[in-house]
């Protein structure tokens, strides 16, 4: 590839990781909890659901806890945090010329195939993240750093699921056969 994205290298992963660790620590120090992502997306989704079918939301015990009656699911730190995540990601990309409409896909598949799998993977990720009460950010990273047993079990389960299936779906990502 000869596009701009190759001109600006990504950070050394150990440097990026160390900076992320400092931010995670500051989050705990200042706010008492770690970072999050899927919980924020969940609240936005439920807020939309609450606008469309409010009676349905009030009737489901799980949804009512998030958005029942007068509760506004958007008044929560997670929602503000994901707004910040998108702004930060956007600015980082902007500075390095990586804000461009494009599809990242493996060399053996078309963008259209990639979209279908991205959508399907997203559904599983969203469903699993609610089941596990957190995602890579909220559980693995944040719970892992403060030594939560459940977060460590969760983290190994994510890696097990990914590595367990990777060989069978290698055509999605790998070159060659």
């Amino acid at each position: 590839m000869n596009d701009l994205s190759e001109k600006f290298k990504y950070w050394n992963p150990y440097v990026g990781g160390a900076l992320l660790g400092v931010v995670l620590f500051l989050s705990f120090f200042i706010t008492s909890h770690g970072l999050g992502a899927s919980g924020g997306v969940n609240r936005v989704a439920v807020a939309v659901q609450d606008m469309v079918v409010p009676e349905h939301v009030d009737k489901s015990p799980y949804l009512a806890k998030l958005a029942g009656g007068d509760i506004d699911p958007l008044r929560h730190w997670l929602v503000l945090e994901i707004v910040g995540v998108m702004l930060g990601g956007f600015f980082s990309g902007l500075l390095r010329g990586r804000v461009r409409l494009q599809t990242y896909h493996g060399p053996q598949i078309t963008p259209r195939t990639r979209w279908a799998f991205a959508f399907a993977g997203g559904i599983l990720m969203g469903y699993g993240a609610r089941l596990a009460r957190g995602c890579t950010s909220g559980q693995a990273l944040s719970g892992g750093a403060v030594l939560s047993v459940g977060s460590w079990a969760f983290m190994f389960a994510v890696f097990a699921g990914g590595y367990g299936l990777a060989w069978f779906v290698r055509r999605l990502w790998q070159p060659g056969t």
Binding site: S38, F117, G122, M155
Partner: peptide, 21 residues
Amino acid sequence: PGIVGGLIMGVGFILGGYCPG
């Protein structure tokens, strides 16, 4: 629930290429 959710997410990760964040 954490372990089962994690396994589902691992599958979602390798199929979808991302995690939520």
